[in-house]
Amino acid sequence: MPAFVPDLPVILAFAVAAFILTITPGPDMALQLSRVINYGRAHGFATLGGAIAGLIAHTSLAALGISILIVAAPTAFMVLKISGAIYLLWLAWQAMRSGGGLKLAGPAKRPPTLKESFATAVGINLLNPKVVLFFVTFLPQFVTAGDPDAPGKLFFLGGEFIVVSLPFTVAMIYGAEWLAKAFTSSKWVERALNWSFAGVFTAFAATILLAEGRR
């Protein structure tokens, strides 16, 4: 197996986290559903392409920055991992206290072009502070200080995130009207997803803090 491929337990654990994050409502999902419902599936796929471009940018920046920390400042890398665990707990708390309510935008006076839908999705993904912090604080939890293959593993995990999210996102585009109705008319659906999100990320945070505490 190539050195840049993480161990199977790491791949599976990250896949669970990626899937939970993907199905939890947020700005990217709201944009995609709005564009499909208002302008058709082509705009849904354009926003999906924009979101993927944003994720590639996040992965690249996080992987390069984290790799530098691992080599130049191992103590700072450890602090980053602990801060990431605390951030995951905060995300879990926010998810549990969130009342839900996915807000879908109505049609604009001038329909956007496919390029505009793509660019809007890139902007929303890149400027979403939760996405930025997620990649900066969550990806480091799956590599260790001193690992010479950490950069490759971080890029692998970023690619895995995209692969895991694609089936649900494509299905969401084809079933946009049904899914939008489920989210906007049934609070318990979004609440159940938020609690699932909270449970998974609380478990990750606890594991990280216990592991760092034993060192």
Rank of each mutant, 00 (worst) to 15 (best):
M1P: 13
M1F: 13
P6A: 07
P6Y: 07
D7A: 15
D7E: 14
I11L: 08
A13K: 00
F14M: 06
A15P: 15
A15D: 06
V16N: 00
A17M: 15
A18P: 08
A18E: 06
F19N: 01
L21W: 15
I23P: 07
I23F: 10
P25L: 12
P25T: 12
G26H: 10
M29L: 12
L31Y: 15
L31H: 14
Q32C: 15
S34D: 04
G40P: 15
R41N: 11
A42M: 11
G50D: 12
A51V: 15
I52D: 04
A53E: 00
G54F: 10
A63I: 12
L64S: 11
S67V: 06
V71I: 14
V71E: 15
A72R: 10
A73F: 09
A76D: 04
F77S: 09
V79M: 03
L80Q: 10
S83V: 10
G84T: 08
Y87T: 12
L89I: 11
Q94E: 14
A95H: 08
L102V: 12
K103Y: 03
K103D: 14
L104F: 07
L104V: 11
L104P: 14
A105S: 12
G106A: 04
R110L: 11
R110Y: 09
P112N: 05
T113G: 14
T113F: 10
T113E: 08
L114I: 15
E116Y: 01
T120W: 12
T120C: 07
A121H: 07
A121D: 06
A121S: 13
V122L: 01
I124A: 05
N125K: 02
L126C: 06
L126M: 13
N128P: 01
K130H: 09
V131K: 06
F134W: 13
T137K: 01
T137H: 05
L139D: 03
P140D: 02
P140Q: 00
F142C: 07
V143P: 07
P148E: 03
D149Y: 12
A150G: 08
A150R: 00
P151V: 07
G152V: 12
K153I: 09
L154P: 09
F156T: 01
F156Y: 13
F156C: 01
E160K: 00
E160N: 05
E160G: 04
I162C: 04
S165M: 11
L166K: 04
L166V: 11
T169F: 05
A171Q: 03
A176K: 05
A176F: 06
W178E: 05
L179A: 05
A180L: 03
F183T: 03
K187T: 13
A192G: 08
N194H: 11
N194I: 11
F197Q: 02
G199E: 13
V200H: 03
T202R: 05
A203I: 09
E212D: 11
E212P: 07
